[in-house]
């Protein structure tokens, strides 16, 4: 009977089909086959560029001689590098904290709006996040203009001297952070709003009956219920903000005197504009350990809490 069926089967050799079937029957083979597209994608788009960057960082300026860790060692003794490290951390941490604060507060406002008007507000508040950053940053660039900008015009009306927003290191650092906060806060708003909506109303009612004030409800109900979302959003935003490029690049070009450079813009300035690609690659590699440590701590905390709840 089995022979009869095999004989009727079309041309492909039965022996070969048998081995194929045997192979497919092994679960590991099937799993590998199903995961293959993703493996290929990640290999070509992530792993290969990453290792290529490591390789590049070990070349000299002419990209002809292998120099080992010389680029890295050079950076470690370079003052500007340490300033960029400090500026990157200041930029990312300050921006993320303010984005989280503003997102948290506005999400409460939007959450408490009547359902009817809520969509409109949600849409409007999302606008900064939806506009292409390059465009909105150019608008900010104009707003910050020392002599003709709207902000300085307003200040002049109140008799305040015009502020060189992009001309002085302190103000320039303030400005890039402000624009980044303006751009990124809506993301926090949406994430926190979703988290808020998932907190059952009855918990607040129970807390109200238990005698909790508004602040106590936020502290004992809202925050604990949102902890994971807050942690994940902040980590995610920290990574994205740390790796930011466009805002600094368009607003200040890293100036004045490199004072607003962060890793990505400085790597670009050294590598592409300064024609020293290996040095640029070395700079960008420094982001990896810093973000890795942050990710480890935040995700560890989430795992720990996830298993305890």
């Amino acid at each position: 009977m089995a022979n009869g069926i095999a004989a009727k089967a079309p041309a492909s050799s039965p022996a070969r089909r048998m081995t194929m079937q045997k192979l497919m029957r092994r679960r590991s083979t099937t799993a590998l086959a199903l995961a293959l597209p993703l493996i290929v994608l990640i290999s070509t788009l992530v792993i290969y560029p990453a290792f290529y960057a490591v390789y590049l960082s070990m070349l000299d300026r002419t990209m002809e001689h292998f120099t080992g860790l010389r680029n890295i060692l050079f950076l470690l003794h370079f003052d500007t590098f340490w300033m960029v490290v400090k500026q990157s951390c200041l930029f990312a941490i300050t921006a993320v904290i303010f984005k989280a604060l503003i997102g948290f507060v506005t999400s409460h406002f939007v959450h408490n709006l009547p359902a009817k008007g809520q969509r409109k507000w949600r849409g409007m508040l999302l606008v900064p996040w939806v506009i292409p950053t390059a465009m909105s940053t150019i608008a900010w660039f104009w707003l910050f203009d020392p002599s003709y900008s709207a902000i300085n015009w307003l200040l002049a009306k109140f008799g305040i001297e015009s502020i060189p927003f992009l001309g002085v290191p302190g103000w320039a650092r303030f400005s890039v952070i402000l624009v980044n906060v303006w751009y990124g806060a809506p993301f926090f708003l949406i994430m926190y709003l979703a988290a808020l909506k998932s907190v059952p109303d009855q918990l607040y009612e129970a807390a109200a009956i238990d005698g909790a004030s508004w602040w106590q409800k936020v502290w004992y109900v809202t925050l604990p219920m949102m902890r994971n979302i807050i942690a994940i959003t902040m980590l995610f935003s920290l990574i994205v903000t740390f790796a930011n490029f466009d805002i600094v690049r368009i607003l200040t070009y890293g100036g004045p005197v490199n004072s607003t450079h962060i890793f990505a813009t400085w790597a670009f300035a050294l590598g592409i504009q300064g024609n020293n690609i290996p040095m640029g690659a070395s700079v960008s590699l420094f982001m990896l350990p810093i973000l890795g440590v942050a990710a480890y701590f935040i995700l560890r905390d989430i795992n720990r809490r996830g298993s305890s709840v």
Binding site: L203, G211, V309
Partner: peptide
């Protein structure tokens, strides 16, 4: 909170954390 009442809800409304 000032009515001195206690309530038991349908889905318990226990604080999960």
């Amino acid at each position: 909170k000032d009515r001195d009442i206690a309530m038991v809800f349908q889905n318990y409304a226990l604080y999960p954390h």
